[in-house]
Design a protein around this nucleic acid. Structure first.
Length: 571
RNA sequence: CGGGGCGUAGCGCAGCCCGGUUAGCGCGCCUGCUUUGGGAGCAGGAAGCCGCAGGUUCAAAUCCUGCCGCCCCGACCA
């Protein structure tokens, strides 16, 4: 396309509201335009990138036997009531009423819709397995949209759903998706890590997230420096069973120092490792004790995974009422309160915690001996340099990252509550076993920019660049230059996506725009062409300049592009 | 929802404390000329409900009240 007549509008200055590099470049390069908080218009240049991403996703989904469909975005309340998510989604769901005053939701995700379709069409095991997917706009009323396209209220998502007869078939569908995702992201030029994740509002058993490591990401993951262990901090674990001290009788000790574990351990001159932090929370109006090693804190996310968002910390009055002592002097010892202890405390012996009596602690605690109603769960914080929970000598690294894909083994959560059943080969009715798999297209594109940019702008991998080539005639008033530019444009256009910068601007402007918008291959026709009949080719992510004769140009350009394509190719 | 910041021309900003000409500046835009290898120069020009509503005042972009919008930091997700 010829730029002079295109919708091509870059900005000279960085947008003041943007913080993240991808956000800045998307705005500055004229790719997107903010409509309202968390809602963006995709401008022509962006849509070209978007379509390419979409194409790669579709190709890989089709490869694993996915069938594309398109589900409605406008859905009645009744559908969501069946799974209880009309309530569960809370204010994150966009809701509206029709003229008859009936409630509707703009879909934040499509499990209910797909399950509804499944129950209407699937009858027999002979119709399974199925993989259905769509690329569709989702609506989520995020509390705080931010970071350009990373966190928005309206966004496009590739969501697929697998329908299977049993769990092992579900696993197969899940693994197919996993492989497809790896291929897609490779083709998109994204460097990523797959981590173990929490399922959250989706429910279900296993889930993994596709994380692109980036300092501007909102998530944190723990990675082992030796083996391939990687996990979202929400579920990360560490090996630390060194709380197995000498066993002894319980004994009260006088600790007239008010304060936390640090204060008391200093006073007693005891290692912090010997302490158990006892924290009282209230959930369902009942008190529950949480126990973690004294040297660690509670990871609130993990608590939420166990109790939902219904838990809260007990206040001073409640602490006293349930334990008979003040904060700092409590523990589950001799109390009839349910205990959730961190897994690392499983074999803990010779430990110290509160005596449920002000100014006293108790020592010699043997968890298994002294606590009755106890369950061991992973609730402690994980830190950089902790031991890997899997291998022998690995240490954990903590990294920030962007979540671009998430795959879930849902199981029968939706099919059971919505009665999506099939008849097995014994004529017995069973719920369909489901999986759900998402990729955020806007996040994918932002991530690519985060991972491929320099101080001058975006550096698109050729697989998704809006155009592969930009021809820059440096002086459009010079006939010889302009004729050659038009000639090359016509020639290259046959096999490539080409932009011709036919604007009457000086060289600097054109170079800046070419850099900013990130077009991979640049063909410059300028003074050199007039003087020596030579044309210059430069490549966006290198400083190398290639000078060619016009007759060789086509071959050289083809080679460069083939070479670039190779980087994103698979198989 | 808690904390912070900002709304003045398409973009980036000054003016606001301390009310008082015709509301400025840079970029962009339009016209003409010159210029053409890293965001050119000169000349002329268009463009503003100073976020909205109310109040104080002879007089409000400026002071007061309320509201709205946008961004950033926290709790949530693709």
């Amino acid at each position: 396309m010829k730029i002079a007549s295109m919708f091509f509008e870059t900005k000279k200055e960085m947008p003041k509201d943007a913080e993240m590099i991808s956000h800045k470049l998307l705005i500055k390069g004229g790719y997107v335009s903010l409509s309202s908080s968390g809602v963006y218009a995709y401008l022509p240049l962006f849509l070209r990138v978007y379509k390419k991403v979409e194409k790669i996703i579709i190709e890989e989904m089709d490869r694993i036997g996915g069938q594309q469909l398109l589900l409605p975005v406008l859905t009645p309340k009744e559908l969501w009531d069946e799974t209880g998510r009309w309530n569960d989604f809370g204010s994150e769901m966009f809701r509206l009423k029709d003229r008859k005053d009936r409630d509707y939701a703009l879909c934040p995700t499509h499990e209910e819709v797909i399950t509804d379709i499944a129950r209407k069409s699937i009858r027999s095991y002979k119709q399974l397995p199925q993989i259905w997917y769509q690329i569709q706009t989702k609506f989520r009323d995020e509390p705080r949209p931010r970071s350009g396209l990373l966190r928005v209220r309206q966004f496009e998502m590739k969501d697929s759903y697998s329908l299977d007869t049993n769990t092992s078939n579900l696993e197969r569908a899940y693994n197919k998706h996993r492989e497809a995702y790896i291929r897609m992201f490779k083709r998109l030029g994204i460097d990523l890590t797959i981590v173990e994740a929490a399922s959250g509002l989706m429910g279900g058993a296993k889930s993994e997230e596709f994380m692109a490591i980036s300092d501007s990401g909102e998530d944190r993951i723990a990675l082992c420096n030796k083996c391939d262990y990687s996990s979202n901090m929400e579920v990360a674990d560490t090996k630390s069973n060194d709380y197995n001290f000498e066993d002894s009788e319980l004994k009260e000790i006088h600790t007239p120092v008010k304060g936390d574990v640090e204060t008391v351990s200093d006073y007693l001159n005891e290692d912090r490792k010997r302490f158990i932090k006892s924290i009282l929370i209230i959930t369902d109006n009942k008190p529950v004790f949480l126990l973690v090693p004294g040297e660690r804190d509670i990871e609130e996310k993990k608590i939420e995974l166990i109790f939902g968002e219904k838990f809260r910390y007990a206040n001073d009055k409640e602490i006293n009422q349930y334990t008979g002592a003040d904060k700092g002097y409590i523990s589950p010892i001799n109390l009839d309160i349910k205990v959730y202890a961190d897994t690392s405390l499983k074999d803990a012996k010779g430990m110290i915690s509160g005596a449920n009596k002000n100014d006293f602690h108790i020592k010699g605690i043997n968890i298994k001996r002294d606590m009755k109603d106890i369950e061991f769960v992973n609730i402690k914080t994980v830190r950089e340099n902790d031991n890997c929970p899997v291998c022998d000598s690995g240490k954990l690294l903590i990294k920030k990252c962007i979540e671009i894909g998430h795959i879930f083994q849902l199981g029968t959560k939706y099919s059971a509550s919505m009665k999506a059943m099939y008849l097995d080969n014994n004529g017995k009715e069973k719920p369909i076993v489901m999986g759900s798999y998402g990729i955020g297209l806007g996040r994918v594109i932002s991530t690519i920019i985060e991972q491929h940019n320099d101080e001058n702008g975006i550096i698109w991998p050729i697989s998704i660049a809006p155009f592969s080539i930009i021809i820059i005639p440096l002086n459009i008033k010079n006939e010889k230059i302009m004729n050659k530019a038009e000639e090359l444009y016509a020639l290259l256009k046959k096999d490539h996506e080409v932009m011709l910068d036919d604007r009457d601007l000086r060289a600097g402007n054109k170079f800046k725009d070419a850099d900013l918008t990130g077009i991979p291959v640049r063909i410059i026709i300028g003074k050199k062409f007039i003087e020596t009949n030579e044309i210059e080719i430069s490549i966006r992510n290198s400083t190398e300049k290639i000078t060619v004769k016009p007759t060789d140009l086509l071959n050289v350009v083809n080679e460069i592009i083939e070479d670039k394509k190779g980087l994103c190719k698979i198989d």
